[in-house]
Write a protein that binds this DNA or RNA. Structure first.
Lengths: 213, 213
DNA sequence: TAGATTGTTAATCGATTAACAATC
DNA sequence: TAGATTGTTAATCGATTAACAATC
């Protein structure tokens, strides 16, 4: 239940790299490979080999000196560590362009996220996308509580994000995937993960601006 | 042209925080405020006050002891530093759900990105979205070279991302905004910025998995 | 066996935070 | 003036990289 293996919190950076290794391993497996060295993985991405070994170790993977890492068990370790084979139900609020894109995307299931339903205050959007019903906001709290959903995805306009976050917390949601540029103020026990395209774009344009200086 | 002010490269973390400050400042300005202290900004986001001062200083902003930062000039400094008022043209490849969402989003203009046109190999998608034409891939290299576009946005399926990146480089594109989970191998002088929703989701589910351990 | 590779400890690097003098 | 706040230098912290013994 609580921290069996003195799990020293793994860094965000590691959590970002593990899925990359996973994809690479999947590719090798498809080609019939069974084993790969950390060095090979590191070369693929331009990372330091030590970092790759540490990341995999943090995920619970184990290699054999002189041999390398067995691909199957390593992939399983990553899946388990990232919670991919322990799918969590989620609800989405805001079925605009981006919300629709997320509802239409099939790939999340393999990463532990199952969007059950969506909500939007605009009646014109209260239809179905990809077999998922978009309900009126009125029904949010009741439905989310009854379903016991613990993850909320926010795709509303920036100015509405904070109030939707508060509504989610009231409905007992514990983790928020925030796709807006708004910084959410939430209690400490709520997990917020920002996936802000605008912020990524700012970094790109900042890097370009720095280069052209 | 080249590094007038010994511009020590600013960290990604700083580039991610600056737009948040900007949004906060815009809000204050709308309320009629003219000045704000770094401390106030830091409290809004739960950051360290020193960090805020350093970030703003890195962006070329300047405060006055005892007074704080004037909002207008600070916003202008951030805009300029991030290249927002120096709009760059871009082309997008892959007009699926996510690509369509990006084409439909109006907010990028204010962040220095102007998507001129899109490309997709699927004839069914070769229409218009939000006034932007979606061309066949055949026309990519010629059109991009003629327009002199330097930024490419990749929204294709993961497996096609690398080959699209190579096509872009061949068409003289210098910066790639990569919205796929694929790690792109490119020459050193090409800027790649990843905006991978899957990766962000992995972090969320990894954090949830760690918490529920 | 010899040598490649892991696992792990130590060193380095960079970013965050603390401290404090300068300033208006 | 007194005190709040900046600008900047120093200390801390954490992540990355280097080094190397253990291992198959």
């Amino acid at each position: 239940m609580n921290n069996q293996k003195t799990n020293k919190a793994v860094s965000r950076a590691t959590l970002e790299r593990l899925p990359k290794y996973y994809a690479f391993l999947a590719g090798l497996l498809a080609k019939g490979r069974e084993v790969v060295s950390g060095t090979k993985i590191s070369q693929r991405f331009g990372f330091d080999p030590t970092q790759v070994r540490k990341d995999i170790e943090a995920a619970g993977g184990q290699g054999r000196p002189r041999i390398g890492f067995e691909i199957r068990p390593t992939m399983l370790a990553i899946e388990t560590f990232l919670g991919w084979n322990n799918t969590n139900d989620a609800v989405l609020v805001g079925a605009g362009y981006l919300g629709a894109a997320l509802l239409g995307y099939e790939g999340f299931a393999g990463k532990g996220l199952n969007i059950l339903a969506a909500f939007d205050k605009d009646p014109a959007r209260q239809k179905q996308i990809n077999g998922k019903t978009i309900f009126d906001m009125d029904r949010f709290e009741d439905l989310v509580k009854r379903l016991g959903v613990k993850i909320g995805v926010i795709c509303v306009p920036a100015k509405d994000a904070q109030s939707i976050a508060e509504l989610m917390i009231q409905a007992k949601i514990k983790a928020i995937w925030n796709l807006t540029p708004t910084h959410l103020n939430v209690p400490e026990d709520i997990i917020v993960e920002d996936a802000d395209l605008s912020s990524s774009l700012s970094i790109l344009s900042g890097r370009l601006a720095a280069k052209n200086k």
